[in-house]
Design a protein around this nucleic acid. Sequence first.
DNA 1: CTGTATCCGTGATGATACTG
DNA 2: CAGTATCATCACGGATACAG
Lengths: 113, 113
Amino acid sequence: MSECKVDLALEAIVGKWKHKILFQMINNDKMRFNELKRSIPNITQKMLTSQLRELEYHDLIERKVYAQIPPKVEYSLSEHGKSLIPILHQMSEWGEKHVEHIDSIYEEVDEQA
Amino acid sequence: MSECKVDLALEAIVGKWKHKILFQMINNDKMRFNELKRSIPNITQKMLTSQLRELEYHDLIERKVYAQIPPKVEYSLSEHGKSLIPILHQMSEWGEKHVEHIDSIYEEVDEQA
DNA sequence: CTGTATCCGTGATGATACTG
DNA sequence: CAGTATCATCACGGATACAG
């Protein structure tokens, strides 16, 4: 197991927005730009664009442009991108357990008002 | 699968240094502060300290202080931290495949001088 | 609709010096 | 040895305006 390769895996999915984009793509086969934008609260056009470009560069997603007016662009997971799904799932599960664990440590006993 | 939980998992391992620290801990049962510092190139004391504190806060590592002069502090993976190992492994494997895949796409055909 | 371009504030990171 | 404290920097991300 070489530690430096984790950097590369992380690069692919971190960045505050990337995994959110990926999750949308997992749940929806094809998504258009504004559809993605609407589905991800608070993301700006700039961020969505740049993150999509990076995901595309890493061949995690595919970008299909329809030559028409008004423009239409569809994004979808690439085959390579789909290989990330198990990891995303595992991280999601671990994250869930993690919250519970943390909650049980830093008990919120001040819920009653 | 809830997407927001991934945030929490990611929080635990990203940050440019955290996963490197975790990997050191995986490979060495107990590590002292300077030992960690030496094993992670270019990390500053400040960064190492802050990242260790965060890992400790999330109960991924344990910090054992020996009351002696000179000071001695040992860091080790907590039980909860060990539950991250499979994910780190998976990410490492995926990272490896990912590099190969990317290389095959952006072919380096300019290796001959 | 799907972007680019620009400007700007903030937080994360780094360098360095100091401390118990 | 194992940190803290302080200052400087710089990329990241946000807001806004513009464009094909």
